[in-house]
Simulated scan of single mutants.
Amino acid sequence: MADATGPTVLLTAFEPFGGATTNPSWDAVTALADRWDGPARMRVEQLPVVFAEVRQRLVAAILEHRPTVVVATGLAEGRSAVTPERVAINVQDARIPDNAGARPVDEPIDPNGATAWFSGLPIKRIVAGIRALDVPAAVSNTAGTFTCNQAFYELMSLADRHDFRGGFVHVPATPGFGAPGLPTLPLDDVVRALDVVVREALRGGPDLVEQGGAEH
């Protein structure tokens, strides 16, 4: 559902890749949009798993929707928790080819860009809120070097210019997806976690202050 008077939240997720026919990140954001009841308009956009196209698709979506908050999501197959990412780095280094067959190795995303961008989301507050639902969550300090990291890097570069709050969240595979034996998380848990992400992003304000001890 959409609030016709409130701010706009843009959620992005990726198309299938690596021979898969679905992508749990896309399944999750579309499910959240279907059940969303405000307090903001929600829009969703699917990004290509193509290095050469990620930025232009992000730019087009941001110019179309003029969001207050942008939450980009992607699949982290092998992780067992929902993981808000702390930092995006200016590197493309592909373990597998993208959907157009490109496989950059140790190339910059932007040769003239910043070395890294930090998330604009309250990542520790988000983790605390997700864990309060008994859904596993943790801060991640690496978004990898594939198109997820690229989308995160490009998003934060755009946020610096277009005045919106943004960040990236990796989600685990859902049951029935991927190789047997890898960790999964039910789709409903992923959707509830992303609901927390969006609501905390809309709240804004400072993140939690870390009280010492190991982060886990």
Score class of each variant (00 low, 15 high):
residue 190 V to L: 03
residue 132 A to N: 05
residue 178 G to D: 11
residue 77 E to F: 07
residue 186 P to T: 06
residue 36 W to T: 01
residue 81 A to Q: 01
residue 145 T to R: 06
residue 69 V to D: 03
residue 100 A to W: 08
residue 74 G to V: 00
residue 152 F to Q: 06
residue 49 V to L: 01
residue 209 V to G: 14
residue 66 R to W: 01
residue 125 R to H: 06
residue 80 S to D: 14
residue 211 Q to K: 14
residue 113 G to A: 09
residue 155 L to N: 06
residue 139 V to D: 04
residue 192 R to Y: 06
residue 52 A to I: 11
residue 37 D to P: 07
residue 89 I to Q: 03
residue 213 G to K: 13
residue 166 G to C: 10
residue 137 A to W: 02
residue 35 R to I: 06
residue 55 R to W: 05
residue 64 E to I: 04
residue 167 G to M: 00
residue 210 E to P: 11
residue 8 T to H: 02
residue 22 T to G: 09
residue 216 H to F: 11
residue 65 H to E: 12
residue 167 G to K: 02
residue 12 T to A: 13
residue 153 Y to P: 11
residue 168 F to R: 12
residue 206 P to V: 07
residue 96 I to K: 04
residue 216 H to N: 10
residue 188 D to I: 08
residue 154 E to L: 00
residue 158 L to G: 13
residue 87 V to P: 05
residue 83 T to C: 13
residue 101 G to R: 07
residue 43 R to M: 12
residue 13 A to N: 01
residue 164 F to C: 01
residue 46 Q to Y: 04
residue 60 A to Y: 01
residue 171 V to A: 08
residue 136 P to T: 03
residue 95 R to K: 15
residue 62 I to V: 08
residue 179 A to M: 12
residue 153 Y to V: 11
residue 136 P to R: 00
residue 176 G to V: 12
residue 76 A to W: 05
residue 26 W to R: 14
residue 150 Q to P: 02
residue 144 G to V: 12
residue 173 A to I: 14
residue 175 P to E: 13
residue 47 L to I: 06
residue 121 L to K: 03
residue 190 V to W: 00
residue 16 P to I: 02
residue 151 A to L: 02
residue 91 V to D: 02
residue 18 G to A: 15
residue 124 K to C: 06
residue 196 V to P: 09
residue 49 V to S: 02
residue 11 L to W: 06
residue 27 D to G: 10
residue 138 A to Y: 00
residue 168 F to D: 11
residue 41 R to L: 07
residue 211 Q to E: 14
residue 5 T to R: 14
residue 202 L to F: 09
residue 133 L to S: 03
residue 65 H to A: 10
residue 9 V to H: 03
residue 61 A to V: 00
residue 104 P to H: 05
residue 9 V to Y: 03
residue 149 N to M: 04
residue 2 A to T: 15
residue 103 R to V: 11
residue 93 D to T: 02
residue 192 R to C: 09
residue 158 L to H: 12
residue 184 T to C: 11
residue 185 L to C: 08
residue 72 A to S: 15
residue 183 P to R: 11
residue 68 T to A: 15
residue 24 P to Q: 04
residue 65 H to T: 15
residue 18 G to H: 11
residue 48 P to M: 06
residue 170 H to D: 04
residue 176 G to H: 13
residue 7 P to C: 10
residue 100 A to L: 09
residue 112 N to T: 13
residue 85 E to A: 09
residue 30 T to A: 08
residue 215 E to T: 13
residue 37 D to R: 15
residue 185 L to K: 08
residue 95 R to M: 14
residue 10 L to D: 01
residue 11 L to C: 03
residue 49 V to A: 00
residue 70 V to Q: 03
residue 17 F to N: 14
residue 72 A to K: 07
residue 67 P to M: 01
residue 97 P to H: 08
residue 80 S to L: 08
residue 214 A to G: 06
residue 24 P to N: 03
residue 122 P to C: 09
residue 206 P to W: 06
residue 183 P to G: 07
residue 101 G to V: 13
residue 188 D to A: 12
residue 128 A to L: 08
residue 18 G to F: 08
residue 45 E to W: 09
residue 142 T to N: 15
residue 124 K to V: 10
residue 33 A to M: 02
residue 196 V to I: 15
residue 118 F to V: 04
residue 203 R to A: 15
residue 69 V to E: 05
residue 160 D to I: 05
residue 6 G to I: 06
residue 114 A to D: 02
residue 165 R to H: 09
residue 96 I to C: 03
residue 146 F to C: 02
residue 68 T to I: 03
